[in-house]
Design a protein around this nucleic acid. Sequence first.
DNA 1: AGGGAATATTCCTGTCAAGGAATATTCAAG
DNA 2: CTTGAATATTCCTTGACAGGAATATTCCCT
Lengths: 111, 111
Amino acid sequence: MDTTTFSALSEPNRLRIVELLIHGPLTVGDIADNLELRQPQASKHLRVLLKAELVEVEAVANRRNYKLRLEPLQAMDHWLEAYRNIWNDRFNNLDIYLQKLQSENKENNDN
Amino acid sequence: MDTTTFSALSEPNRLRIVELLIHGPLTVGDIADNLELRQPQASKHLRVLLKAELVEVEAVANRRNYKLRLEPLQAMDHWLEAYRNIWNDRFNNLDIYLQKLQSENKENNDN
DNA sequence: AGGGAATATTCCTGTCAAGGAATATTCAAG
DNA sequence: CTTGAATATTCCTTGACAGGAATATTCCCT
């Protein structure tokens, strides 16, 4: 897992940008307006997201359409899998434990 | 989604600590040895992970056993869900497209 | 060609984080 | 109660990063 993804998302405004772009590509100005950022800061944050490959640009005339890239998020998802296994196991163990309790309880009632 | 989790994991050594603790609780010294960190740096990184609630401590005598906490990772997993939906949709669309191509091809062969 | 809109870049400044080195704290054992 | 092991904390220095303000760039339109 590459820390650049985490690094890019550790800045609140950049996280908000990523969350905003989930609905579709947006222009720098639109992003700045939506998040109440000044245009230069929006540009700067987008440049970081670009280097982290969390975003891609399409230039159309004067404007730049920034679009979300899913690959780094998929990598995160894949990285999480090892941990997901842990909490799933724990859930399963709890489940088995409860079933065991229940069957023991049934036996007691049968006596 | 809280940026403190991303922030904590954006430091390579801290990420390595989290990846190391997946196998079970470890002592500060063990962590430092495993990752070839100096003890004070290990302590400092653990303090950050502690504040981010990615880790918890159990003091036993002289030592401190640091143990992974899954909640922030579960939160990340939950946050990713919105994006997972996107790439699943895309996969489904591609799948449907391929099925459509296949059935059209069959029709052509039938003619 | 010139003006204005959209965006990027630069410069400056303040803040924060990380590593190194040294020191403080806490605990068990003799 | 002293020593040594394990850990935390402090101080210092350095580098990265974010925001503000100003400016540069690129493009369309007339």
